Amino acid sequence: MDSDAEPDKLRGRFLHAGMTVLARDGYSGFKQASVCTEAGVTTGAFYHSFRNWKAFETELIAHWRVEATDRLVDAARSVTDPRDRIDALTTIALNLPHGTERAIRSWAAVDSSVHDALTEVENARRAAIADMGVELFGTELSQRLAATAMMLLTGFENAANPSIDDFEWAIRTVTDTALAFVDARQE
Score class of each variant (00 low, 15 high):
Glu168Gly: 08
His16Gln: 15
Pro162Gln: 05
Arg11His: 02
Tyr47Asn: 11
Ala117Gln: 14
Ser28Asp: 14
Phe156Asn: 00
Phe30Ser: 02
Met150Gln: 11
Leu141Gln: 09
Ala178Phe: 00
Ala68Pro: 00
Thr80Trp: 06
Asn161Asp: 07
Ala45Tyr: 07
Glu157Leu: 10
Asp183Ile: 09
Trp53Met: 14
Asp70Ala: 11
Thr154Cys: 04
Glu120Pro: 00
Val174Met: 06
Asp183Gln: 05
His63Met: 06
Ser28Tyr: 09
Phe181Tyr: 13
Ile61Glu: 05
Ala55Ser: 13
Asp2Phe: 09
Ala127Asp: 15
Arg77Pro: 03
Arg83Ser: 07
Phe156Lys: 00
Leu179Gln: 02
Ile171Phe: 06
Leu22Met: 14
Arg85Gln: 15
Asp116Phe: 11
Ala146Ile: 05
His115Ala: 15
Asp8Trp: 13
Val41Leu: 15
Ala5Ile: 12
Pro7Lys: 11
Glu59Leu: 12
Thr20Met: 13
Thr139Cys: 03
Asp165Asn: 02
Thr69Gln: 12
Thr91Gln: 05
Tyr27Arg: 05
Met132Cys: 10
Leu152Lys: 02
Ala76Ser: 14
Arg185Ser: 11
Thr173Lys: 05
Gly155Leu: 02
Phe167Gly: 01
Arg85Ile: 05
Asp116Thr: 14
Gly133His: 03
Ala68Tyr: 04
Asn158Lys: 04
Tyr47Cys: 06
